[in-house]
């Protein structure tokens, strides 16, 4: 009986790629949202403190 190690590694490698890819996608989306929240918060704060200054 041949062992077919290449098939075993292909299967585990592919699974690692898919799971790792999904994890990274979630993390990226989290960072994007945080950046968006930050920008909005900063914009709101700027509006409150200096209502007369024009927005950049």
């Amino acid at each position: 009986m041949r062992d077919n190690w290449s098939f075993v590694f292909a299967a585990y490698g592919l699974a690692a790629l898919v799971l790792g890819g999904y994890w990274r996608r979630l993390n990226r989306r989290e960072r994007e949202l945080a950046a968006l929240e930050h920008r909005r918060g900063a914009a709101r704060a700027e509006l409150r403190t200096r209502p007369s200054t024009p927005q950049r």
């Binding site: 098939f7 585990y12 699974a15």
Partner: peptide, 11 residues
């Protein structure tokens, strides 16, 4: 019967 390729089962 299958050899080491059966380890794919654990995934």
């Amino acid at each position: 019967t299958q050899g080491n390729v059966q380890r794919i089962m654990y995934l």
